[in-house]
């Protein structure tokens, strides 16, 4: 794990860019879409919610997505450089090998998420003069909830990225496939606009899109309201009506994709001839 964190900090350009890029994206999206999103937003979640607040979960999820979808690249680089084989030849446990990598991504995503939430609060203050209490109505519990759902969400896409990496064993292919699949997925979800104003086919796709659940879960934790629109659950009350199904769906994605990734990793590292 330490090696990956050191590597991350060793490359300030990439680290800086991966932190700043979502912020730039955030500001631009908030300003541009915020100008037209008002009506749709009022219909969906009520007039008291600013577009900045509405958009924050999408940006949190988007940057977690960006970080997670390049997770497999480290693996490919290690396979190229022989570090993968070297670690396999050491007495180090197989599980520890991969957990270390995953933990380093989690640390990165936590830092990113905290920065974006801070950024959102500042942006909201400039837009409306509201304090952080309005921005994150759910307080510390909401913040922890955001982190938990984001990490869970990232887990599914880390698995996906590692699956692509293990199948292709190629850096460029991993970046391309991960990005070209995940970026459009953002748009066919509830990330940027309420689903009510979007075409029917997007609504259909959004129902099976893990990003919808990541965004709705985080959004519910931020707003403290049931914002889930793709499936209607009323059993838990309030925000839990969105958070519980979101977590359930993300857990399923994690288990399925994680199992495939672990299986492929196992195959790549087992000693039997291939």
């Amino acid at each position: 794990m330490k090696r990956w964190l050191v590597k991350t900090s060793r490359n300030p350009f990439v680290t800086f860019t991966s932190l700043v890029q979502p912020v730039i994206f955030f500001v631009l999206m908030a300003e541009v879409f915020g100008a037209v999103a008002g009506g749709a937003l009022t219909n969906a979640v009520g007039a008291d919610v600013s577009y900045v607040t509405y958009l924050t979960p999408a940006i949190v999820v988007q940057s977690a997505l960006a970080a997670a979808s390049i997770s497999g690249i480290g693996l490919v680089i290690d396979m190229d450089s022989g570090m993968f084989e070297k670690t396999l030849a050491s007495p180090m446990g197989r599980g520890a090998m991969f957990l270390g990598k995953v933990f380093s991504e989690v640390v990165r995503i936590v830092v990113q998420t905290a920065i974006i939430l801070g950024c959102g609060a500042v942006l909201l203050y400039f837009e409306t003069g509201d304090g952080p209490g309005t921005f994150l109505e759910t307080g510390v519990a909401g913040f922890l909830g955001v982190l938990a759902i984001t990490i869970l969400f990232a887990g599914a896409f880390m698995s996906f990225s590692n699956i692509v990496a293990l199948v292709t064993r190629d850096k460029e292919a991993t970046i391309l496939i991960s990005n070209s699949l995940t970026f459009p997925l953002l748009f066919v979800s509830s990330a940027f606009l309420p689903l009510q104003v979007l075409p029917d086919w997007i609504n259909t796709v959004a129902t099976v899109n893990p990003i919808t659940y990541g965004v709705d879960g985080v959004r519910a934790a931020v707003l403290g309201e049931d914002v889930m629109t793709v499936i209607d659950v009323t059993a838990f009350g309030g925000a839990w009506n969105a958070i519980v199904p979101a977590i359930a769906v993300l857990v399923v994605f994690n288990v399925v994709l994680g199992a495939i990734a672990v299986r492929l990793l196992h195959r790549a590292s087992r000693a039997a001839v291939q």
Partner: peptide, 29 residues
């Protein structure tokens, strides 16, 4: 029991020499 030096040089280019050896020491317990 074994130390293994593969045919292809396998050091992590983004780490210093010291960090590379330290990493090997860690993974070998």
């Amino acid at each position: 029991y074994v130390g293994y030096m593969p045919q292809e040089t396998s050091v992590d280019p983004e780490l210093t020499a010291r960090e590379n050896v330290r990493f090997s020491a860690r993974i070998h317990g």
